[in-house]
């Protein structure tokens, strides 16, 4: 579904990603882990076209996407739930979701997707006329996920969705992610919460200083391996 080969990215002279290879198969939950500054968010931004890689290729669903603009990538069915939620604060919940279905492909499926989102997060239906800015952190995160689902994706990427939320809220969001995945959607999960995301994932990648230090089925990882890959100890 998503195939990344030999990806390199620089912030000026600083190499933020080096020789990244990553493979997400259809229907999987893939988790990308790493400490602050390991390059997780940079990698995601490069995948969705907000950054342009210096070298390497990214294929999604058979299409080469590394040269495309963000607004063209989402048309193909790859969507990112960005870190910090980034909902439209001065638009209502309803309008935020409408904006999620901006592409023509998503517009056709808008009605059904509204129902799916409200089924997944009934709270959003209750708050449909509220402005984004007036929602609680958890509700904003639901809205950010709902907005992404409105785009009719085949692959959905979550960037640090548990940041700043209560453990209870995080638990319910993870349940929602599992349900999204069971519906047939491929999921990439980027987290600092190692335990939870290793438990959820089919495949895991651990990044350190812009390099992949460990990859594979997390069930086969030993604690020592993970620590070494994560901290470099």
């Amino acid at each position: 579904m998503l195939e990344i080969k030999d990806l390199n990215f620089y912030y000026g002279g600083f190499q933020a990603l080096s020789n990244i290879d990553l493979d997400a198969k259809k229907g999987q939950i893939v988790s990308i882990l790493g400490a602050n500054g390991a390059g997780k968010s940079t990698l995601l931004k490069t995948i969705v076209g907000l950054h342009k890689a210096r070298s390497g290729t990214i294929y999604f669903d058979g299409n080469k996407i590394d040269h495309l603009e963000s607004h063209d990538i989402v048309k193909l069915g790859l969507v990112l739930v960005p870190e910090g939620r980034k909902i439209f604060a001065n638009l209502t919940v309803h309008e935020n979701l409408l904006m999620g279905s901006y592409t023509s492909r998503a517009r056709k499926a808008r009605k059904g997707n509204f129902e799916n989102v409200f089924h997944l997060f009934p709270r959003l239906k209750e708050r449909t006329d509220q402005f984004g800015i007036n929602l609680s952190g958890g509700e904003q995160q639901m809205l950010a996920i709902g907005r992404a689902l409105m785009s009719q994706p085949c692959l959905i990427i979550f960037d640090e969705i548990s940041l700043g939320l209560s453990p209870l809220m995080v638990k319910s969001l993870y349940e929602a992610i599992k349900r999204i995945n069971q519906g047939g959607m491929t999921v990439i999960l980027v987290e600092q919460d190692v335990k939870r995301s290793l438990k959820t994932a089919d495949t895991a990648y651990i990044l350190q200083e812009g390099k992949v230090t460990l990859k594979g089925d997390p069930k086969n990882f030993t604690e020592g391996e993970v620590k070494k890959a994560y901290f470099g100890l």
Partner: peptide
Amino acid sequence: RASADDLSASKLMGI
């Protein structure tokens, strides 16, 4: 209005 609110998020939504 959405692009005025959050530029990168609106790009991500296909705008």
